[in-house]
């Protein structure tokens, strides 16, 4: 990608953001300062940004794994919810055994994410249903599933609100640094991003996945197990998104409620796009989106600019990139 493109997109996005801030009746300069303070201005702010980046980094990596193998998994949102629901179900089982409870979450959440993707895998390979359609519909089912779980089987009998029982404080991951919200979950997310980058670039499996994603017919004719590779990448993508949901519960919320996600799965796809469909690029974009999220929460508090800004700006940036680059961008920008 050319530096001029990047610069153009960045300037365009900033200008649009400034316009939105003006619309909200605030001064762009003040707003920008508030945004930066909210994202990086203190130990707590940095911790908040890091904490928010866990889900975005993991869903971005999940998107990269699927898209690079040629699977348009738009179902990350649903897989994230499935993972969160699984975490809320198994997390409270061992309130006094943190190790067991955490292990159960880390096992169950990716499994639930993969299971949430499984019907789409089957539909794609056996019934030729495009994953774009099936995963979108499975997202709707997952959203309804959360609505049901927090009012039914997982409902906290002690609370007034429809939400699941809380994980005990002993089970919840504790901050890496006192006073900041970030936990070891962030490190796990970054580690997985690095692992995915290594797998894709440096291993025979990664080469095979890229070949299947780039040219499915050629990969098949060359004797690569195309169905297994695609299905495996799809399920792995679901598992990563599921883990993101599980860690959200284990590290941040401590329970499931409704609505649980404000589109982190979709934002993950946007982050992957902005990051050039590479795991590390996706992780970096995810971190940027998280900073924007933390910053705009502060912005809403301080200057009354609605925090929805945090989902508009990334979308504008990706649209700018798509407009500048044109052509097909599903493949890598190698």
């Amino acid at each position: 990608m050319k530096a001029r493109t990047v610069l153009g997109v960045a300037i365009g996005t900033l200008a649009a953001a400034a316009l939105l801030v003006l619309l909200a009746g605030a001064s762009p300069a003040d707003a920008f300062a508030a945004l930066l303070r909210g994202a990086f201005g203190s130990k707590a702010a940095v911790g908040e940004t890091a904490a928010r980046s866990t889900g975005l980094v993991l869903t971005a990596v999940a998107a990269v794994v699927a898209f690079r193998a040629g699977v348009l998994n738009i179902g990350l949102e649903g897989q994230f919810l499935a993972g969160a629901a699984a975490a809320a179900a198994v997390g409270p089982l061992f309130p006094d055994l943190p190790i067991a409870a955490r292990a159960a979450v880390v096992f169950a959440a990716p499994l639930a994410g993969a299971l949430q993707a499984a019907p789409a895998v089957w539909l794609a390979e056996k019934r030729q249903v495009p994953p774009v359609l099936s995963t979108i519909l499975l997202n709707l089912v997952a959203v309804a599933g959360v609505t049901w779980l927090v009012r039914g089987p997982l409902r906290d009998p002690a609370g007034d609100y429809p939400q699941s029982r809380a994980l005990s404080d002993a089970v919840l991951l504790s901050p890496l640094v006192p006073g900041a919200r970030a936990t070891a979950a962030v490190l796990a997310a970054l580690g997985l991003a690095a692992t995915a980058a290594f797998l894709l670039a440096r291993t025979p499996l990664g080469l095979a996945l890229r070949a299947v994603g780039e040219a499915p017919r050629a990969a098949r004719a060359a004797g690569l197990p195309d169905v297994r590779l695609r299905s495996g990448a799809f399920l792995a993508s679901g598992a990563l998104a599921g883990l993101a949901g599980g860690l959200e519960v284990l590290a941040l919320t401590g329970r499931l409620y409704d609505p649980f996600s404000a589109g982190v799965g979709y934002s993950g796809i946007a982050a992957a796009l902005l990051g050039g469909m590479t795991p590390l690029g996706g992780a970096a974009s995810g971190f940027l989106f998280a900073a924007l999220g933390a910053g705009s929460s502060a912005l809403q508090r301080d200057a009354g600019v609605p925090s929805a800004l945090a989902s508009i700006v990334p979308a504008l940036a990706v649209l700018g990139l798509l407009l500048a680059r044109g052509g097909r961008t599903a493949e890598s920008s190698r």
Binding site: G263, I269, R325, G327, A330
Partner: peptide, 29 residues
């Protein structure tokens, strides 16, 4: 985006959803 500039329509559509959700929420607020 998707016709004249020939960007992948699936990607444009995904991001458009995100933008519309954010923009309507912003405007409503």
């Amino acid at each position: 985006f998707a016709v004249a500039r020939r960007a992948d329509p699936i990607l444009v559509g995904t991001v458009w959803n995100l933008l519309a959700l954010g923009a309507t929420a912003f405007a409503y607020r």
